[in-house]
Design a protein around this nucleic acid. Structure first.
Lengths: 110, 110
DNA sequence: TGCCGGTACTCAGTGTTACTATCTACTGGT
DNA sequence: ACCAGTAGATAGTAACACTGAGTACCGGCA
């Protein structure tokens, strides 16, 4: 997928990452891998790490350094209370937008 | 709705405007009004005009100046062939993203 | 021993996007 | 003469995802 997805991801990627963290704690490399499995084939590693830095600075996550058997220590992120609130609001906003878009698409050919 | 919607709109607003033009030709002020009716209460006029300038420069629309009875002449935009193709691709990209997000949300509490 | 691939994170620079705020301009009504 | 409503344009700002490069640690293989 092309440039359109890149622009659509703005604002969405953050929600996606938070949603993944909502399922269970995870670290950056793992999140990137899971995104690729999920179909987001060409999301760059650097992009994911940038999101993580952002949500950490906003205080939406708890961070813990965990030594790894193969490679540098992992930074494991987990949602905290504020993060859950933020994620809830993301879902509300997303629902609103998706609703409008569905409506628009339905009205397309008629 | 707050900043989250602003970020989610990036990339989406362009598709929304093109979809509106897909229904029937329209001019900027009219599009803004229709967006407000549709629930996008706080999308600024200037934002819509910026989108229109962009899609015109990309050659996705046909533009016609039509004199108005009350106010300056209107710039009426209509989708051309490239615009329809672009809109189709937008819907495909949107569907992909919406599908992933739905999947993520379902897997949330389980 | 030396090297390479996989793991894991970081960072500077770029382009795109929506928003804010302000400005111009035309019309009709008071 | 003034003002509200209509209609469009624009400069500056902040946020975001991407590119491309770099650092660091580990195990296995020749």
């Amino acid at each position: 997928m092309g440039k359109q997805l890149t622009e659509l991801l703005k604002g969405t990627l953050e929600g996606i990452v938070l949603a993944i963290l909502g399922e269970r704690p995870a670290y950056g490399y793992e999140i990137t891998a899971r995104l690729r499995e999920q179909g987001f084939a060409d999301i760059a590693e650097g992009t994911v790490y940038a999101v993580l830095v952002r949500v950490e600075q906003r205080g939406l996550v708890y961070v813990e350094k965990v030594p790894s058997e193969k490679g540098p220590p992992r930074k494991v992120y987990s949602l905290n209370g504020d993060g859950r609130d933020y994620l809830d609001e993301f879902w509300r906003t997303w629902s609103f937008l998706a609703g409008r878009l569905d409506q628009l698409r339905d009205g397309e050919d008629r």
